[in-house]
Design a protein around this nucleic acid. Structure first.
Lengths: 244, 244
DNA sequence: CCCCTTTATAGTCGTGGTGACTATTAAAGG
DNA sequence: CCTTTAATAGTCACCACGACTATAAAGGGG
């Protein structure tokens, strides 16, 4: 609770914590899921890769801190279409060897990656394929896995996938988002039918088309629609039986 | 991030925060959704109702603190079937008028309510119908609304509803859970068909039955199954058009 | 004791969403 | 000019689900 019901409470009855934000920033590059990592310059975990993040300032909310850190460390500040969303909070007492740190983790999605650069805080910032992002500092392996699972789940029942796409995109590119996050192939005509049947998911850009890189029939261009939920959802192929 | 990339960092470079937990504890009573509230004894918001909660201790994770506070304030400690799950973290700088408090909110579900009693910290603890739980202290109105929305959403694609039920329950009782949380009526035969068709959702207790309170045909008893996910989901009737 | 009410359970029917396909169109390349 | 590649169109069968109707098993009231 925000209040305090302890009898005899005063301002020293609680223990101070450091509060940080961690960001799992995703994008799609070359058809595969990439995550933004920074290289740590100091102990502990010096030289190891970690999720970008930093301390929450006294006058800002965690959401504000997340946006600020993303800008400072990677130069990905006012990127259009940045989708930022709280994931969960990690508070195990021993998750930082130095002191008691509670971290509010965020998930961020953005369209085809602007190149990241090491910013003020980070020695280096880089887009890394999700599959090769292991052995991160602290409990960031777990945070990253949680973030990916959350994004995968939200693709099913929200229109979130467009947050990975530039302002105008083809249905093939949108499908690549699903395939990259879920790690499964989807049937193209069926995917197309589903997306177009969902009112407000995408709307066609009149008369425009784009060559997907050369060969093949040019694809129509679409913009993100106004819908935010997907009813009924677009379920990923069930990994196993009905868990019985 | 958990680490610190600031050059020249030392242990005083960060500002300390107080970290608390808030709990939105739900149960079903008389077929309607109830939430557990405590009455505040001190300023600010003295005499107002609030979500139970309290400070996280230096050596415990937020999840641990949540369980402890629930036990201390309400005596609902080792209730069998208690489902506890993190909701999100609220960190607006002015959410507590006294000082900077970051609160990790949790959602808890439990079977037909044991009566709550004011515990060590709380002046009074009481089950309140969700619809009458307004005007809470701090930002607890918002936390409560977020919690209810989350629970409603999770009923769709998880087997969470059994967490509201005693160890043995009828399908009618299970349906009441959905109707109470969603606030809509469901068709009984269709609900039954769906639940039984989902492998691992519930399993019948051989030969047992219960009179639902007197009249009517006695209902068969079921136990929660081993499944945790619902594929395909049990969608609540769409409130409006496809948001287009 | 019969009938009505109540609640659980069984079954039916039609529709729509979806998986698995096949076919056609429009570009580039050799 | 034919092949390859990718987008788009269309088909078909199945199954889940909403909307029903019907039956079974209890209690209550006359």
């Amino acid at each position: 609770m925000s209040g305090n019901d302890l009898p005899g409470y005063d301002k020293h009855a609680y223990e101070p914590f450091a509060v940080t934000v961690d960001l799992a920033v995703f994008t799609i590059r070359d058809g595969t899921l990439h995550v933004l990592l920074v290289e740590r310059g100091e102990e502990p975990y010096a030289g190891r890769w970690a999720l970008p993040g930093g301390f929450v300032q006294p006058d800002e909310a965690a959401e504000t801190a997340a946006r600020r850190e993303l800008a400072e460390e990677t130069g990905l500040a006012d990127v259009v279409g940045l989708h930022l969303e709280q994931l969960r909070t990690y508070s195990e007492p021993d998750r930082d060897p130095r002191m008691r740190v509670v971290s509010v983790a965020f998930t961020a999605l953005l369209p085809d990656a602007p190149e990241a650069h090491g910013g003020s805080d980070a020695a280096d910032a880089r887009w890394v394929p999700y599959d090769r992002a292991a052995g991160l500092a602290f409990d960031h392996d777990r945070i990253l896995a949680d973030a990916r699972e959350r994004v995968g789940a939200k693709l099913e029942y929200t229109c979130l996938a467009t947050a990975f796409c530039p302002p105008e995109f083809t249905l093939g590119e949108l499908q690549q988002v699903y395939e990259a996050v879920w790690g499964t192939a989807l049937d193209r005509p069926n995917f197309r039918r589903k997306v177009l049947a969902t009112a407000g998911f995408v709307e066609q850009v009149a008369g425009a088309s784009r060559l997907t890189g050369g060969r093949g029939k040019p694809a129509a261009l679409y913009r993100a629609g106004t819908a935010t939920a997907l009813h009924p959802p677009l379920l990923r192929p069930a990994p196993e039986g009905p868990s019985a």
